[in-house]
Design a protein around this nucleic acid. Structure first.
Lengths: 302, 302
DNA sequence: ATGGACGATAGGAATAGCCGATCAAATCAT
DNA sequence: ATGATTTGATCGGCTATTCCTATCGTCCAT
């Protein structure tokens, strides 16, 4: 058995074809075929079902493939650890970030990181929490910035900042003139919400209640971005909860007013998370420092 | 990089010498030296410090070695998974068992397992919980039978049975004639205890109090085995808490009486634990069934 | 039926891994 | 101090593995 063979197996499992897998691995198709055949014989398990069209993973093969992924991830970690032991702050950091933080933090974070971590270029991936965490677990991301409790013990986290929510109301709205609004004053049916999967959607529903009403909110919005939501709010379609950094971008613009919220937990905790096995903890801590610096020094948020 | 190279690294780290490591790996010393040298160059990290006498792991090497162990364990798991996918119930099970369970359960468990799991011979390792758990984590054991909560999320467990404690008293003792004794009636200073590291010692102290007195119990015993303790008790040196299965062995013998205990938590929960990554869960569940069968069917315990 | 896509097979070339023999440095015993 | 011993590195040659190109068989779609 061999690390390379396992990479071949994973490639076939991912791409569904021997030929594609071979070119992805930069070897010829016969080479890959032969090695996999040999491995199957060595293990006594047929991993793939070849029916001429596609290569499917057999039921017994599934376990093998899963373990192969684990081995490869561990080997990658070893290489990363070796590189990190030269200089943990050197080498690219693949950073996931949720869609309701990315647009507002990135413009500050990226330049700050370029200064604070000059040898560690940041590659940003913006997506939903539910998509980022598997990528993280798979070793396809080095870290992620999210706003919910990370699941399980396999992840390590460090808090970046607390970000209060604001109620966003069109300027004509009765709330627009208020100093503050209590969460229980807000009619959840008037709330405009993001699409499923955005943690901000769940947090807004948690705060303003009635998640049991299902999707029966006023406009029944499933907006793909916070900006869409804010435009809709300005146009008078309803109200929105926005994190402070998003609200800040609209300060001074016409048509939309940010009103502080009163109540329990009217803030979200934004944190940096990474796999506990990831060998560049020093880089993670440095990145967290940079991010905290953005928030503290800049005009950004809380 | 290669799985074999990583095995070489781990062998050197474990044995402290290139030569020994080479023979442990069944290769010549020049081969092993060469491969490790090549790996060090490839990773850009000097893993070992050669000073002519011993090969020490460098500080930067420590991380590499730790990751290498992880890779190898994952690869071993893959092989195990392959074998298990043929028949999970085939192949030896290396089973750790704590010293206060082993002598009483093993005589029933081993024959029962030989019948219930005929193709999975049990290799029993008796030791303290604190020694078994690292062996388990290292993949040097497949499972362990312990009586405390397993730490962390990396282990999976299944309860086997609840085993009440009995107060063991010499036949002349006032408690010997009682139907039952409350734990708070027992003077902890009269308790004979096992050596440090036995969970039963801690459990006895938890029940009868005064762990803050340090070792100031009556006879200040640190017995290595429960049998020693029971003999001491029979000889009148004090009292002992014994799990039901151990007490049962003395039933009918002169000089020692087992008295049921009253109170909270006067039982221990014996369970089977294994690494979550271990691919033979089916064998674990079958083994647990066998063990439960011993306890239920036999005259053993509760 | 036929062309195209896919994987298996065969034979030869390149590479990597291995061994025995030997060398250099450090340690130990006299 | 000095020779013996131990330990790891180096060298030359051998072997096994891995890889490639070319080719074939099979299945599917046209």
């Amino acid at each position: 058995m061999n690390l390379r063979d396992l990479q071949y197996v994973v490639a076939v499992a991912d791409l569904g074809q021997f030929g594609r897998a071979a070119s992805a691995c930069n070897v010829s198709q016969p080479t890959l075929s032969g090695q996999i055949l040999k491995l199957e014989e060595e293990l006594g398990v047929q991993i793939f079902e070849r029916d001429g069209r596609v290569a499917r993973v057999t039921e017994r093969g599934e376990a093998i493939v899963a373990h192969a992924r684990r081995v490869i991830r561990a080997a990658d970690d070893l290489k990363t650890a070796a590189a990190a032991s030269r200089d943990p702050l050197e080498g690219p950091i693949r950073l996931g970030i949720i869609a309701t933080v990315g647009p507002y933090l990135a413009p500050y974070l990226l330049p700050a990181a370029a200064r604070g971590l000059p040898r560690a270029p940041i590659r940003l991936v913006e997506d939903l929490t539910g998509h980022l965490l598997p990528l993280l677990a798979d070793g396809k991301l080095d870290a992620a910035i999210i706003a919910t409790d990370p699941p399980g013990e396999r992840l390590e986290e460090i808090a970046l900042y607390e970000e209060p929510f604001c109620l966003m109301a069109p300027s004509g709205h009765p709330f627009a003139k208020r100093k503050s609004v209590r969460v229980d004053e807000i009619d959840p049916r008037s709330l405009l919400l993001l699409a499923d999967g955005h943690c901000l959607r769940d947090q807004a529903l948690d705060l303003c209640g009635h998640p049991d009403l299902g999707g029966a909110t006023g406009a029944d919005m499933r907006a793909a971005s916070l900006e869409t939501l804010l435009h809709m709010t300005a146009a008078g379609f309803g109200l929105t909860l926005a994190p402070h950094m998003a609200a800040d971008g609209w300060r001074g613009k016409d048509g939309l007013v940010a009103v502080p919220l009163k109540g329990e937990n009217v803030a979200r905790r934004v944190r940096l998370v990474w796999r506990r096995d990831m060998p560049r903890k020093a880089a993670m801590l440095a990145l967290a420092d940079v991010a905290r610096g953005c928030v503290a020094a800049g005009r950004v948020a809380v």
